[in-house]
Simulated scan of single mutants.
Amino acid sequence: MNSYEPVPENTPHPPDASTQAGPRPGGLSPARVGTVVWGLIVVALAALIVVAQLRIVELNGTYVLIGLTLGAGTALVVGGLISARGRDKKTSTRKS
């Protein structure tokens, strides 16, 4: 049987829990850094569009794009480092 065939109804064991979709046994999983950063980019871009349409500030598209790219890149790198650091603390036994 390959992964594309459905599981027959008369199988002696249920499929592994690792292959079934659903929440993790420990509860809800935390939000991923990339998801949060992309959400912040969309919100910032929407806010800049509103500000530009209200003519409160004159915006240069090139500078806005450079600023968003720098901010997003920095947030992704810092968030990834923090996430990796937290993951290392959970898995280490602190035995040398």
Rank of each mutant, 00 (worst) to 15 (best):
N2T: 13
S3C: 09
S3W: 10
Y4T: 09
Y4N: 10
E5Q: 15
P6M: 02
P6Y: 01
P6S: 01
V7C: 09
V7Q: 10
P8T: 01
E9H: 08
E9D: 13
N10A: 04
T11P: 01
T11A: 15
P12C: 01
P12I: 10
H13V: 06
H13C: 07
P14H: 10
P15K: 02
P15G: 03
D16E: 11
D16H: 09
D16C: 07
S18P: 00
S18N: 10
S18L: 13
T19Q: 10
T19P: 02
Q20V: 05
Q20L: 12
Q20A: 08
G22H: 12
G22W: 11
G22F: 12
P23R: 15
P25E: 13
P25G: 06
G27R: 13
G27Y: 06
G27S: 07
S29T: 12
A31H: 11
A31F: 08
R32L: 07
V33G: 04
V33N: 13
V33F: 15
T35V: 05
W38E: 13
W38N: 06
W38A: 02
W38Y: 07
G39F: 05
G39Q: 14
L40R: 04
L40N: 11
L40Q: 14
I41M: 15
I41V: 15
V42H: 06
V43I: 13
V43F: 14
V43A: 13
V43E: 11
A44G: 09
A44F: 08
A46D: 02
A46Q: 02
A46R: 02
A47I: 07
A47T: 05
L48A: 13
L48W: 05
I49C: 13
I49F: 13
A52K: 11
Q53W: 11
Q53C: 02
Q53S: 05
Q53V: 02
L54S: 09
R55H: 15
R55A: 04
R55D: 12
R55Y: 08
I56M: 14
V57A: 14
V57C: 01
V57F: 11
V57P: 01
V57Q: 10
E58A: 14
L59P: 06
L59T: 03
L59Q: 11
L59S: 03
N60M: 00
G61S: 12
G61F: 04
T62I: 08
Y63V: 05
V64T: 08
V64N: 08
V64R: 04
I66V: 12
I66E: 02
I66C: 00
I66N: 01
G67T: 15
G67M: 11
G67R: 09
G67H: 09
L68D: 09
L68P: 02
T69Y: 04
T69M: 14
L70T: 12
G71E: 03
A72Y: 08
A72L: 07
A72R: 08
G73Q: 08
G73S: 15
T74C: 09
A75K: 06
A75W: 03
L76P: 06
L76R: 05
V77L: 15
V78E: 06
V78P: 11
G79Y: 05
L81K: 11
I82D: 04
I82P: 00
I82N: 03
S83V: 00
A84E: 10
R85G: 06
G86K: 12
D88C: 00
K89D: 00
K89F: 05
K90F: 00
K90V: 07
T91L: 15
S92G: 08
T93A: 06
T93L: 10
T93Q: 08
T93M: 06
R94D: 03
K95W: 12
S96C: 00
S96K: 07
